[in-house]
Every structure is written in structure tokens, then in C-alpha cells.
Computed example of a mutant assay.
Amino acid sequence: MFLSYNLISHSYSINDMVIFVGNGNRDFGLKVAKYFPGCLSNCIINRFSDGEIRIPPIQENIRKKDCILIQSVSCSTQGSVNDILMEMFVLIDALRRASASSITVVLPIFPYQRQDRKSYSRSPISSRMIATFLETQGVSRVIAFDLHASQIQGFFDRVPFDNLYCEPYFIEYIKRNLDLENLIIISPDEGGVKRASRVAKELNCKIGLIHKERDTENQIDTMVLMGDVNNACCFIIDDMIDTGGTACKAANLLKSQGATQIYFGACHGVLSGKAIDNINSSYFEKVIISNTIEIEERFGDNSKIDVLDVSEMCASAIYKSLKGESVSTMI
């Protein structure tokens, strides 16, 4: 089910701005562009016969104008992650060579963000590489949602980075759909405690934690629940859900400890591999994700998955960044 909550005032008017929407989750980009009437470029990226990226002639005059590029670099029906990433780089180059005044890159999901450290000897830090590419191309600002690790912002030395959080949408969803009296917010690991604490504070409810113990091959061996969930409505909140294997194990643990209802909320619904099968056979009442990544285009409608529209928050962040207003009230 696709859900839209109007949490932020909108309808913006900005002169000298042009919005470009890539093929990665194009529906999200078009939703954002609707908040800026008359600013959407007609440019649609396509391919040469050999598969190389082709930027058709840009009909709008963008000299000395603020250009916004919206591209969700993740699972897509329009190509691989790397195809979508290369689209973004090629379009940035075209905008810079056309003398754009500024180039704001909106990445609903930051690519390669889980590769943010050296996890083994001679391993790359791929998210740092993406940051270097963007800075080298001379972009003016980067806007993204729910980074897997907030330190990725520190990979940018010269470019301002705005990291937006989907938490207000999950809070609104919980208020409208869940039993607040018996609610417990669950952090799936130690790294997500701050996120869970912020949500629990807004909802004035308890918080629980799942501690993961890993074996010698860095695979999850056991899970230990910290907190009492007997007869409780549990809401696990995380930044993303990929194959769903770990999330479903967490649901099994909560169910074994007496939880009556279990929900899972994540900003990014990567949903690769057997994710849909895992979710359908799990104890989750619902899995709630945002539309930062293509969902309905890949899977159609699924009764166990609710999708929250966060395009209005993205549009507000774009407006505030161009007008020099504070974004901190949103994050």
C-alpha cells in the first residue's frame, strides 16, 4: 500500500532552477518535481546502441541556473546499480560544462554506503570513493536519506552534505496504525540505538535492543533480546532492509519472547534476493519502507508491505538549501 502523509508545508516557487530526473526511481524524482511547477527539464537519459550513456540535447538554458539532479542509485528496473551511477556522473558533467551556477545532487539512497570502512585487509572503502568522484566533478551540495553510517558525511571535504531522516513518517504511521499503550520500539543492533531512542522519545514508549553475536566468518550466530516484549506490540526500526534474513530472525526472536504484533520499518527497501519470500513467510504484520528505492515497479502491490512517500521532505530540503534556510528542523 502506498501512503502519503502531509507533514511539511509545501508548494515552492524558485526562479532560475531546473530539475533533472534520472532513470533510477524516476517516479520519486517526478513526485519531487511536482512541488516546483515549471522547473522540470524534458531531458530523459537514454543509451547508445552499444549501451553507453547518452545525454540528449538539453533544451532548457541552464547557464547560471541552479540545477537539481535526482537519481536513486540502487536496485532498478532500468539497469544495474553501476548503470544508474554512471548515468549520474555523465549528467553532472553535462550540467557543469553547460555553465550551471550550482549542481545539487539528490541521492535518495547513497550508493555503496555499506562499504564505509575497511572490514578486512586490503579492502576498499567504496563510499569514500563515491564521495571523491562527486567532489572531483564539482557538485555544490549532496542531499541523501538515512545514511547507513553518519560518518560518510565526513568523506566530503569541500561539499556540504544534508542527511535527512524518515523518522517523522514512521512516527506518524505508528500513531495512526499501532497500539501505543503496549508499544515497544526495537533497535536491531547497537548501531541503531540512537535512531530507536529518538522515535521512542517522540512516542513516549519503551525501547528494546537486539544484540547480535557473530561467528568467526562474521555471520550472525545468535541474537539476544534486551528488554521485555511479552504481550507487546514491537516496532523494529532500521535504516534499510535488504534480503530480510536478519530482520526475519529478529521477528522470530520477538515472537518467541511473547510479542503479540511485530512490525518492521526501514527507510530503504533494497529487497534483493529472496526478500519478498522471506517477508511473506515471516511473523511481520507489516514491513514499512519509504519510496527512496523502486518498490511497486519491481514487485507490484504486496499486502505485507506499506510504502511511505517521502518526496515532500526531499522537496523541502531542496528549497531550504537553495534559499539558505536551516534544514536542521527536518532532521
Rank of each mutant, 00 (worst) to 15 (best):
Y5G: 06
N6A: 14
V18R: 10
I19G: 09
D27N: 10
K31L: 05
I45N: 13
P57A: 04
I58R: 10
N61M: 06
G79T: 14
D83R: 06
I84N: 13
M86G: 08
R97F: 13
P111Q: 03
Q113M: 12
R117F: 04
R122V: 15
S123D: 09
S127M: 06
M129W: 04
S140D: 08
H148C: 12
S150M: 13
Q153N: 13
G154H: 15
F161N: 09
N163Q: 07
E167H: 13
I171K: 14
Y173N: 02
K175F: 11
R176V: 08
L178G: 10
N182P: 07
L183M: 04
I184K: 00
I186D: 00
G192N: 12
R198D: 07
C205M: 04
K206F: 13
G208A: 05
C233E: 07
A247V: 02
K249Y: 11
L254Q: 02
S256Y: 03
Y263T: 13
C267D: 08
S272E: 03
S272W: 13
K274D: 05
A275F: 04
A275H: 10
N278A: 03
K286R: 10
T292N: 12
E296Q: 03
K304N: 07
A317D: 06
E325P: 13
I331W: 03
